[in-house]
Amino acid sequence: MGGVAEVFVRRVVEWYRAHGDRDLPWRSPRGGWAVLVAAVMLRKTTAKQALRVYTEFLERFPTPHALASAGEDEVKKIIEPLGMEHVRSRLFIELARELVARYGGRVPCDREALMGLPGVGPYIASEVLLVSCGLPEPLLDRNMIRVLERVFGIKSARKRPHTDPEMWKFARSLVPKDPEVAREFNYGVLDLARRVCRAASPKCGVCPLADICRYASRRS
């Protein structure tokens, strides 16, 4: 990796260290179960909402074994502030039971195995591999895709770019090999997308990538 890609990665990591949401508990190295719990909680909700229940949930259900035998009402009571508690509680219990039945309560560090679990798609699988297993995986969602398309001037041929193998290949090529830097890079891109490189009204004037960004150069 060199040229614009190298500058892109370095600046994203530097920006994240200075401005990113580094204190979110699920972003530090931790077990796969804690990462899965956060990922399910963060669907269609905000980090602020998830923070209200995340620690309590893990204290009550620190392992898949602890949750597999729980009642749905008990789970719903804890996660009610997130909304969709009926759907989430059933998914949490199903996920825990599958982990116990198929992997003895261990969260596997294998993409295919992870994606065979209830509610786990490519993004969640990547987050487990990245945060829990220390593998250089990209957190490719619509936010990361937007940043990559704008900075590098690329465009997926698919209507749903997050299903494009070529987009995944390109994103994966950018992720640093060092586990800690890989996490900083991924979360840096996501935070930058949310705060600066927004879908509407992007703040190109304060973006650390503006001078290497094809989108920003067309706006200036």
Rank of each mutant, 00 (worst) to 15 (best):
V9W: 08
L95G: 04
G83T: 11
L67Q: 10
A18M: 01
R11Q: 02
A101D: 14
V13W: 01
R17V: 00
E72L: 14
D73G: 15
D21M: 01
L67V: 02
R30L: 15
D21C: 00
R43K: 13
L82E: 04
R97C: 09
G104L: 04
G71A: 05
E80A: 14
P25S: 03
V35M: 04
G20D: 00
R97P: 11
L51V: 07
P81Y: 10
V40T: 13
A50T: 01
V87N: 15
P25Q: 00
A18K: 00
P62K: 05
R97D: 06
F57S: 02
D73N: 15
E85S: 14
S89Y: 11
R60W: 10
R90W: 02
L82P: 06
I93K: 09
V40Y: 14
L51P: 00
K76F: 03
V75M: 09
I78S: 01
D73H: 15
V100D: 13
R43V: 07
E72R: 14
R102N: 03
G104C: 04
K76T: 05
E94N: 13
R60M: 09
L58F: 09
G83N: 06
V100G: 09
A96Y: 06
A34H: 10
T55C: 05
D23T: 05
R90P: 05
T45R: 04
D73C: 13
P81W: 12
R30Y: 08
A96R: 08
R90D: 04
V100I: 07
K48I: 12
E85I: 09
H19L: 01
L42P: 07
R60G: 06
R88L: 02
H86I: 15
A70V: 11
E94L: 14
Y54W: 06
A47D: 13
A66G: 08
E74N: 12
H86K: 15
R22F: 00
